[in-house]
Design a protein around this nucleic acid. Sequence first.
DNA 1: CTGAAAGCGCTTACAG
DNA 2: CTGAAAGCGCTTACAG
Lengths: 293, 293
Amino acid sequence: MRVIDELGFQPNFFAQALQSSRSHTIALVAQDITNPFYPALARGVQQAVGSADYVLLLFDAGAGGQLMHAFAAEVVQRRVDGVVFAVGDAEEDLQTFRRAGIPMVAVGSRQFDFDLDWVSADDERLAADAVRHLYGRGHRRIATISGPPGVAPGSTRLAGYRHGIADCGLTPVAELHAIGDWTRDGGAKAMATLLSLSNAPTAVLCANDLMAIGAIDAALAAGRRVPGDVAIVGVDDIDAASLVRPALTTVRIPAQEIGRMAGELLLRRLDGDAGPQARHVLIQHTFVVRDSA
Amino acid sequence: MRVIDELGFQPNFFAQALQSSRSHTIALVAQDITNPFYPALARGVQQAVGSADYVLLLFDAGAGGQLMHAFAAEVVQRRVDGVVFAVGDAEEDLQTFRRAGIPMVAVGSRQFDFDLDWVSADDERLAADAVRHLYGRGHRRIATISGPPGVAPGSTRLAGYRHGIADCGLTPVAELHAIGDWTRDGGAKAMATLLSLSNAPTAVLCANDLMAIGAIDAALAAGRRVPGDVAIVGVDDIDAASLVRPALTTVRIPAQEIGRMAGELLLRRLDGDAGPQARHVLIQHTFVVRDSA
DNA sequence: CTGAAAGCGCTTACAG
DNA sequence: CTGAAAGCGCTTACAG
């Protein structure tokens, strides 16, 4: 032991990995690392798996092109111990991991033809909660600006909006649903449509913060006060939400917690005490009341 | 070959690594992955080293506590092929890598007692450029809100501001230098001081965007128009810069390019065609003209 | 309880 | 040019 200390001996990591077929390495495959959701997710995963001495191999699929396929092959080839998969539209690559028998946990609500652990925000409930908040503030004409039809998590949030409307005893009005494209401009355009209605809404739930910021732009440009004439709520709580004027009221998606939970589920699979059944965990959001609603 | 295909044989990664003592893995040690600079940096590094089949092991030092020391040990123990080190105040850990003989490249301007490849924004020049831009727009009383004294990169930007003032043939005025703390609030307070001068500045260069946004707050709160009464320039080009009103004119720090260059320098070291001397690379910024100046 | 051997799956150098 | 052997540095199972 003294000699180990004196010579600074360290066991050869590769030899250990070869012998045990374990590298204490987790691949984190992220949709787009420049979207602030993913760094927060990464931190959460690192916190969870780091305590058990696992380290993260980062794959940023957003860097472009057909990287995702190459990544899937690389992940398999490197024989990582597990994968946290946070790419929305790559079911095919999920199958690659599955065939290779690599333990994995998916992030984001999705449907599979096979059972798989996954962790997600409670997209349906958070939208319903936002509607109830607006109702509680006295609003009765509550509109929504959704994402493109049929794509998660926008579709799930739209369903939640509808549940919220029903829960509050309001009658659904088709024209109070405008469609955006997740961008600031798209939100502004959708808002312009809503404001041009003969009976314009007094509150708007936007499916993300960027569209909500665009909606504020459009409302102010149309001479409406926010929240005096129209209240506006977003979803995400990006940095800019607290920087725009009026500061955006929004639903915070706890990316770091989602990451932590994904890491914990994966650890349990790796330790073998997970059970054969997949687990689906919904992480609760928090409502952040600022000035826009 | 046919059999390889049929059985889906893949060489064992650990055995290859053991044999060659090469794992085609680069450690990226980042100060704080939730600061948007670092994800962009990570993408750049991935782009550079990915083309040579290297993969990134991510260490997010910002996750808290005394993680940095544990990370340094982990990086050494895992025998990564190289390190991109993007933590500002951890010279001690740099020494750890150096002693272990791991090739590395540092990000951010710094001083060492030993030679080391590093890549950084040209902090001095970008501040001087901003001053010249303001001078070109007719401003003659140009103030600056700096970071805390003596800390990079704030000190470097302050030096650049002073050079810019001299280059334009203006006389330096001590009271036109206010000190902030990199936050929005700190920027607002510093701005309030500047505006209370008997001879207030007509333009202010803030050492980062957050302080610039705070400066806009303070200017508007004091009843000044931006840029009509005071022009304001930031540094960084964070997302919020284009979202605030008036949209912030700023100097964009190209984090992704810095990452790409760091990756390329590291690859050259790994390939052995780097030469014994360290190289220092300054990456050029771009000036983003929006509405605030 | 201690110590030598076998084997993890490659790659490289050497013999046939 | 092809094929068997040695060795990378561990860990595990076995013999003494």
